[in-house]
Amino acid sequence: MIPPSVLRARNAMVTRQAILDCARVRLREEGYDAASLREIAACAGVDAALVSRYFGSKEELLLEVLQTGGPPMELFSGPREGFGERVADLLVCAPPDDSKLDCLIIILRSLSSQAAAEAIRNSSRSNFYAPLVEWLGGPEAKIKATMIAAIMKGVTLTRFMDEGFGFSEAEMALFRDRLAETLQRVVDG
């Protein structure tokens, strides 16, 4: 028989994860300012006070959502010469609802919020820039990481503003290839 304390701990973990999952969806769909703690709590089937108990504040919940999105380590694994291809595939070919795009979309939809700005900066530094700078190495690593991030954000913003790129299949393939080449040049440059 499982002790009651273990059952409570498991339920707490399940509840915490449900809150994070609901927050990720609401933040992705609405951005920071429009997503309310009450809506997130309702989605998770809990009282809004429980969200605050687990995460403290809405800013801390955002930070946790961004941090649990994890560093994009799969982009930094594999051969260096395939980096441009991996990122281009993610940004251009992944379905619009692919969870791998969540952090980028949440960031783009929440950037205008002064309350969210610090959490976004902190998350970006620790979950993206720092691992990318380390992976790139060398004296220009910070400059390269910033260029890569700017390209990724720009492509993501364009994709979601235009509900896709409005390209034919051939144009989409060419765009993806050119994006891959551009990103690879930054890495190799």
Rank of each mutant, 00 (worst) to 15 (best):
E118A: 10
A34V: 06
A18E: 06
I40A: 06
G56H: 07
V92Y: 01
D98L: 08
P95M: 10
A115M: 11
C43A: 14
P71R: 15
S36W: 02
F55R: 13
R80M: 05
R80T: 06
E64V: 11
L63T: 06
P95N: 13
S52R: 15
F83A: 09
I107L: 12
Q114P: 04
A23T: 02
R109L: 01
R121T: 00
R80P: 04
V25C: 02
F83R: 06
R121Q: 01
D47V: 13
T68I: 01
M73C: 02
P96D: 14
E39M: 12
L104V: 01
Y54F: 11
G78E: 07
E81G: 06
Y54R: 09
L101Q: 11
V46L: 05
V92M: 02
E59G: 05
I107V: 13
Q114I: 07
S57D: 05
P95F: 08
F55G: 13
I120Y: 08
I106A: 05
D98Y: 09
L111G: 12
A49Q: 15
V87D: 01
G78K: 06
G82E: 08
E64I: 04
I107D: 08
Y32C: 12
E118C: 03
L104F: 12
R28A: 08
M73T: 11
M73N: 09
E59W: 05
E30Q: 14
I106T: 02
A48W: 02
D33R: 15
M13N: 05
L50M: 15
L50E: 15
I120V: 01
V14W: 06
Q114Y: 08
E60G: 09
P96C: 12
L108Y: 04
A41T: 08
Y54G: 03
A23I: 00
S112K: 12
N122E: 13
P71Q: 12
L37W: 05
